[in-house]
Design a protein around this nucleic acid. Structure first.
Lengths: 347, 347
DNA sequence: CTGTTAGCGCCTTCAG
DNA sequence: CTGAAGGCGCTAACAG
């Protein structure tokens, strides 16, 4: 990576580095237009491209923002990433991307890598884990983030804040009202649905999943319904498929009532639908089915999926702008229950 | 971003910077274990995190790889990004992400930004444009990439190489056999399908789309069929929807034969299916429908979509490894026609 | 095996 | 308004 340097440009233009720097890279004081023109010509003829690393070192500001997601191929995260990218571009920042396996341990690694690169802010897009076995790694993650903040870094979190953080002054969290929305969804479904409820959630200890499960149960209780059975599985399409496979067996049992299945995200709901289909069952005829997120790519699925709409791209944009501007504290975003055909009673 | 520095660590440990550097950051020669321990202790107590910017400047190698996609929220690109990310992590690189609007002009901007950051390789994941009006921007893009290569950068391209590049020695292209596969698809469909063919493609001049259209027409010709009518529209879901809307009108016309619609990518095919549905039509009953890419998230769509499977994640992985290793020239990847229900004749 | 000395490319006071 | 000098944090040749 041996490009031409400012020194070369300056020499060619017959001026000092300082002058060349002032004309080429934004400086408060603009040199005389005659000189400026010479410098620009020299730069162009050499194909000069300022070394951002060196600039970053000199003014200790990198213009980098780090984005940590569980899986960039998951439409939930890629929609968020789109928003992050849009905000970053608008603010003249570049985004560094890291995907993790979802464990706080690998998130810690990503944070350290970003800290090493001196990213100005770090966005944690994935759900927090509250599993007992992750407690240690979570603590280490918090330590790393605290250190990062103490050194001047900003942190943006989506959904839940990171537990154990002390430098909360530089953390911006965009709260996703998972619990409240799941509660609303349950109330809406309880209105039309007679039979028992089943919740298909992610692994226990995945905060987003747990919040949605909890909220849904609250809603059921508020509607005077018994608590739903909860199936814990992978927080993805295949998890949903596995759970759906098991549920299908119960549905086909003689005399079983038609259940209402709440999958904790849309992708899982699709998995459930696929499993039901394999058993010759389909929503809403044999079971009502709802998801969460309202993933854009899934809107053309049939039966159209009842779900909770979340402005994913905005989420990414908001958390990024919040982190960049250094606004501490939480901001919030709105979602909305969307009832479609998969929970219809007009079969 | 004022973290503690190597100098501070060295002072605290009572050694020279060089020694501290040798123990903390990988060096060929390892200092005595006693000293090393002191240095590590000092680093830990200070929470030292090496400044990658400074390291990059000193050894002129950044460990950065730049990824340029049209739209990270598009499952086609996010699957590729996943592969790129995986390869990057394996090779201890970080990925910088840029999304463009798909025009060569904005791609040029991204290349310049990456060049400024001294990324060691740049991956261009999106289709090239051959539109007349993009000729100028394409040329500028080529100039920028050439300069980047001349300065030691590596370029990885997916699908088609960038036109007008002279520094081909440092460009690695993973070719996607769009034309051949589309041809195969046409042959397979012509076998079962009697009626006329319609192609729903992206805007004219989008290389990937044009290649698929061309290949499909070749296949039809080889099967002794008349050329298909081609509808040009947006290379995305909504484009497919618009085209499908128009086609639906013709299908419902009295006495019209059942057409076979080839949408140049899966997402467009979904749009077509949605539009047909709005007109009370559905595949395969009223029209056969095929896509391209075999996007994972769409496999649960019904009718299941006939398409051409592409190993998207591998594509990302391959182009990244190729670009990192500096292997010049093209490598290739295989795809396969997958016939599913949407083109079934057993209605 | 350790420490010293130069830079890497740029920005930014400070003089002139 | 311009030029000279020092420093950002680190690595890599040298010397000891």
């Amino acid at each position: 990576m041996a490009a031409s340097t400012l020194a070369e440009v300056a020499k060619l233009a017959g001026v000092s580095q300082a002058t060349a720097s002032r004309v080429l890279n934004g400086s408060a004081r603009k040199p005389a237009e005659g000189i400026a023109e010479r410098v620009r010509a020299a730069a162009a003829s050499l194909g000069y491209v300022a070394n951002a690393q060196a600039q970053a070192l000199a003014k200790s500001s990198t213009g980098l923002i780090g984005l940590i997601v569980h899986d960039i191929a998951d439409p939930y995260f890629s929609a968020i990433a789109q928003g992050v990218q849009a905000a970053a571009r608008q603010e003249h920042r570049m985004v560094l991307l890291a995907t993790t396996d979802g464990t706080p341990a690998s998130e810690k690694d990503a944070v350290m890598a970003f800290a090493g690169r001196r990213a100005e802010s770090i966005i944690l897009a994935g759900s927090r884990s509250t599993r007992r076995e992750d407690a240690g790694a979570n603590a280490e993650l918090a330590v790393e983030l605290d250190r990062y903040c103490r050194n001047g870094g900003r942190v943006g979190t989506l959904g839940q804040p990171v537990a154990g953080l002390t430098e909360t002054g530089s953390v911006h969290t965009v709260e996703i009202p998972n619990e409240a929305l799941a509660r609303e969804l349950a109330l809406a479904l309880a209105r039309d649905h007679e039979g028992p409820f089943v919740i298909v959630g992610g692994p226990e200890g995945l905060a987003t999943s747990d919040d949605r499960i909890g909220g849904f149960q609250q809603g059921l209780a508020a509607a005077g319904r018994p608590a739903a059975e909860v199936v814990h599985t992978g927080f993805n399409r295949n998890g949903g498929f596995d759970a759906g496979d098991g549920i299908a067996g119960k549905i086909t049992a003689a005399g079983a009532p038609r259940p209402c299945i709440f999958a904790c995200n849309d992708v899982m709901a699709i998995g459930v639908a696929a499993a039901l289909r394999e058993h010759g069952l389909k929503a809403p005829r044999d079971a009502a089915l709802a998801g969460f997120d309202d993933i854009e790519w899934l809107r053309d699925f049939r039966p159209s999926l009842s779900t909770v709409g979340l402005p994913l791209e905005d989420l990414g944009r908001l958390v990024t702008l919040g982190a960049i501007s250094g606004e501490a504290g939480p901001s919030a975003v709105e979602g909305a229950v969307v009832l479609r055909h998969s929970t219809s009673t007009l079969v």
